[in-house]
Every structure is written in C-alpha cells, then in structure tokens.
Design a protein around this nucleic acid. Structure first.
Lengths: 333, 333
DNA sequence: TTGTAGGCGTTATCAG
DNA sequence: CTGATAACGCCTACAA
C-alpha cells in the first residue's frame, strides 16, 4: 500500500525521507538529478506538505494574528488590507479577530490567537491590559501596537502621532482665521488614539489662542449627524467644526446640507483619515491624511523581518499630512 | 528535568498522558477528582496545548479561509466581520486573503489557504476557475460561494439573488413613475454579481415597460461622480439613476449637489447595499438592503455545522429588501 | 476509570 | 550528497 507524505515519496523514488525533506525546503546540498527526480515524484503524486506536521517540527506556523475593534470601519479594513497584502509576500497568513466594541475582549481574543499558533500579534492602539501584556511575554510572543507611535508598555509601535494630528488640525483651522472651533470626536473611553488627538487639539488651541468646544459622539455617520445637531442647536458659537474621524465629518456634512448650511461659506468642516470619498464630496473635504496603507505595509515587513531574520522591530512614526481641499475657508465676518 | 506538554503533566500528576488528553478534550469518562487534579496541574504549569501537534494528530486545524476581492470595500469588510464574529463562537479562526482586483489571483490565494491548512473556504461570487474547482475537490476541501444564491459548479451558495435585486430596484422605480432610468454599475468583467444585477435590471425594465441606460463605472465614490457626470453631460434623458452599489450612489449624490440638482426633486436616486451612511444622507437614500451580516453569520454556522457535525451545507437564498427613504420620488414632468 | 503504545507527517541530527 | 532515526506534542485504539 502507498504510504503518505514524504514517506510515500521516499518509497516512490527509492530515496530517503531526509532527501525528500531537503528538496522540499530547497536545501543546497542535494544532487541536481536527485532533486529533479524528487520534484517529478512530487508533481506526479500531487503532494502537498502537511502544514501541521511542519509546524510541529519547526515550531513555526507562519501565521500572524491581528486584533482590531471591528472591520466595519474602513479605517481598520484598509489597514488590514495592506497588512494582508504585504504579509502574503512573505508567506505569512493573517488571521483576524475583532473585539466588537468590548475592549475587555481584547485579552481573550489575543489568547485565542496565541492558542491557535499565531507567531506574532498586531494590536490596535497603545494601551493594553496588564494581563494581556503578561500573557504575551509569558509566551514570548512578539506584538506591535498600531495607529500610535509610542507606547508605555515596552511594545514597539508602528503608526502616527495622534497628538500631533489633533494639534495640526486645529492649528490649520486657526491659521485661516477660526477662533472658535467645535470638535466632534468619537468615544474617549477605551480609545487612546481619540484621547491623544483631543489632547493635541487642546494643546494646539492653547498655542494658537483659539477656543474649542469638545463634543463626543458615536463613531459613525449617524454620530456625525447627531453631533452636528447638538452643536448647531446649542448656544455656543463656532465657525468651524473639526471631526476627529471622517465618518463623523460625513454626518456633519449631511446635516449641514439638510439645514441649508453651505460649507465652507457658513461653516468650515475638517475631518481626519482621508477616506476614499473625501476627495469627491461636495465640497471636497479638507482632512488629515493618515498613512494607513503605509502603516499596514510597514507593520507587515517589520513583523516578517523579526520572524524571518530576527531584526528587532523599530518603533516607527509615520507622517500624517493635512490635505487642503474646499471644506475649509476663512470665517465670514 | 521537566518534560514538556502532556507528558510533563502526566509526570507531574502521576497520571498517564491519555488521562491528561481526556480532560483536555473534556471527555466524559474521567473521574471528577482526577480531572480536578489535572486541571490544577494545568493551571500550575500554565500549560497550553500545542495547536500544531493537535492538528497533526486530529487532522483538524479549526481554521477557515476566506478570499475576497478586497477589504477596502465596506461590503466585504462588513461581511467578514460577521463571519469572524460567528466563527469565533464555534472556535474557528478566520484567515483572510484578498485578490486585490486580479481575479486570476483567486486560485493562487485559495491554494495558499489550503496549503496553510484551511479546512474550508469562503469564496466570493459564483464563478470560479476550473483549476480552482479541481483543486478543491482533489483535496476534498469544502467551500461556499457567497453573495450569490446559486452556482453552476456544484458548490453550495449562501447569499442573495442578485438578479432579483436588480429587478426589484427598477420595478420600484418604475412603480413610482419613472420611465427612463439610468443605471450606474461597477465593472462587469470578473464580477458575476454585477452581471446578474444588470440582467435583473433589464428584465425588470422590460416587464415594466420602462427603458434603461446602462453605464459602467469604477466601483467607488469617484466612479459614482464620474458616472454621474457622463450621464448628466450626455444627451440621454432620464428621471432616475439607479446605482448598483451604494458607494457609487454616494458619488452621484455628491455630483448632483455640486450641480445644484436636488434629489429627489430634479432626479431620483436609488442605491444598493444599504451602507451605514445611507439612512443619514441628505436626502436619506432609498436602497436595497443586502443581508450582509446575516449572510456572514449563516456562512459561518453552515461551515461549522459541516465541519463539526457534517451537516451538508444547504444553499441559502437570503431576502434582500427595498428600504424606501427619501431619495426617490415620482418624476416631475 | 486509567494506562500503554503507536501513529500523525515533517524536520533535523548524525553517521556514512 | 544521502540515509537512519529520533524528536516534535498530542490523540486514540486497545488493554487492563
């Protein structure tokens, strides 16, 4: 009866499993003819190495896990898209886990990913529970924090400076003359990036001598609509609204349209992310472009570099840039 | 010296590996006290079963692969989000592969997924290369086609009826009085769902006795803008534009805003997908709601059912429904 | 209820 | 350059 796997090939070729294994991993020390013979047998048998057996023997799974809040926000989807594309280049598979808005789930998800053999992990943001960190280094599993450019827990980070982003955004608004700026942002709780951006906004406002009105809302279009309503129906005065996420800005845009407010004549609008519709909206949205795709690619190459040639991961700070379009103008009066 | 794995635990507890393994897989035939003792040892040792070894012994990886065109379109991201959530309930990991707009890459990606041990695959659309199909059943790897409700290749499908969707959409438009309808759709090549929707549109138009103007464009907001321009600058007359994807509709909405055309007074607009902004746009978008999340969940449970209790996957046709909002009205004339 | 022993398919270490 | 053979860590008949 035909044996399976390398054994079968060994039998078929009259060689030993060692030799088969060698050509499988293209080791150099194998006779050209022998190799050809093996290759032929492999082809003939339609042989595929068993990944589990290989993983067991090598202790490498070539799998990397990523845990993100959700895939439903295109910012994460775009990021993971880039990660996946790049990881594939290096022969790594990406397995995804979402926390669906319960940050407490992060540790659990990380555990599941580790339990299924992930060799490294991609995390969102800089803050992670002590338990999670403990687990990581108990198992010696490397991890990278993303969307941030520094952490206080020893993990490397690959991302952008959220504080700077907030600061740059208000500064830009102030520079064209806005003195009172409404700032719409997503939930602060469990989102260090939002908190960082807000801190940057406050810092920038102070420096520029302008005042900000902070308003928290849900991180989606509806949240933008509601935030705009609260702001517009409120008693506070402002000439521009800065949204710390483009999705929120889209809601504001819609709500302004609804009220017959024209942007940027009646009110200036600025976002953050530079989602794909931003260049095509009416008016085109001035926003902060986040290097999402570059970040994804860099995370992937960093991880591959670490795993394949154990180059330590260097924390990287990618530049975000303001892209001026038509939704911001100098205030009227 | 301490041994590793189950062997170590066996030694530590004075039991045999078999017993350890039994409690690990919570077999019922193990003494309550014994089990407790093992559990304690496991806790004490911080023991984690090695997934590769387990996979090797059981021939199960508890991993499912999905190949989608991209994660950058929220329709796929939302779908996979649902798949992931549900799969996690059953203890399966989701590994994702994207084809990034080269459909020829699908077979390669499928191969990679199989080579890394995926037990089943989730495919997009009903059409797949012969080679891919051959590979699947050569390896005996089950697969489901999604976003469609039937296939001609023997694979089960879980999704919706795209033809019906197109038909329902024009029919709706016709029912409120539109006689000439412009239809904006994404690339037909390599997208059977789009082709199906178009077929439905044509069929519905014929039945309702209305005429359609088909226009292909890129499947993104910019594509919508450009499509709208082509249509609006063209010589053909129409009172409504039906977009076979909401992203395209968003572009049309923006372009109409830009031209001072008000929807639905000057022109009616209808989309397809029901993305999250659709309910909040100005005006709120009338669209066809695709059961993306339900589809994802069903795909996941179907696969789990097949793998865990080998219940064959039943092709399922999920209902899409028109959600009437304010972007469609009877034509003026 | 518990233990023994063999196998899952590769890789890797030594010899030859 | 090639071949035995022992891991790798877990599961699972078959026995006891």
């Amino acid at each position: 009866m035909k044996k399976t796997g390398v054994r079968g090939l060994a039998q078929a070729t009259g060689l030993s499993v060692a030799t088969i294994s060698r050509v499988l991993n293209n080791a150099d020390n194998v006779n050209k003819d022998t190799r050809e013979r093996v290759l032929e047998a492999i082809r003939a048998a339609g042989y595929k190495p068993n990944p589990a057996a290989r993983a067991l023997a090598t202790k490498r799974t070539r799998t990397i896990g990523a845990v993100v809040p959700t895939l439903a926000h295109s910012i994460f989807a775009r990021f993971l898209n880039a990660v996946e594309r790049e990881l594939a280049q290096f022969g790594y598979a990406l397995v995804i886990a979402t926390t669906e808005g319960e940050p407490e789930a992060e540790e659990r998800r990380v555990g599941e990913l580790m339990d299924m053999g992930a060799e490294a992990l991609i995390l969102s943001g800089a803050e992670h529970s002590q338990a999670l960190l403990a687990r990581l280094d108990a198992a010696g599993v490397p991890a990278v924090c993303t969307s941030v450019c520094e952490t206080a827990n020893g993990l490397p980070a690959v991302g952008y400076d959220n504080c700077d982003i907030g600061r740059a955004a208000v500064t830009h608004l102030a520079s064209v003359g806005h003195r009172r700026i409404a700032v719409l942002h997503g939930p602060k709780s469990d989102n260090d990036r939002t908190r960082l951006r807000i801190a940057g906004v406050e810092n920038g406002a102070r420096r520029a001598g302008v005042s900000v009105i902070l308003q928290e809302t849900a991180l989606d279009v509806e949240g933008g609509v509601e935030g705009a309503r609260a702001l517009l129906d409120g008693t506070q005065d402002f000439s521009a609204v800065l949204c710390l996420s483009d999705v929120i800005a889209l809601g504001v845009l819609f709500e302004c349209n609804r009220r017959g407010l024209t942007i940027p004549k009646d009110i200036s609008l600025m976002g953050c992310d530079d989602l794909d519709w931003a260049a095509n909206s009416t008016p085109p949205l001035t926003t902060v472009r986040l290097p999402t795709a570059r970040m994804g690619a860099l995370v992937a190459t960093s991880l591959a570099g670490l795993l394949d040639e154990d180059k330590p991961i260097r924390t990287a700070r990618l530049e975000a840039s303001i892209v001026e379009r038509a939704s911001v103008a100098s205030p009227a009066e």
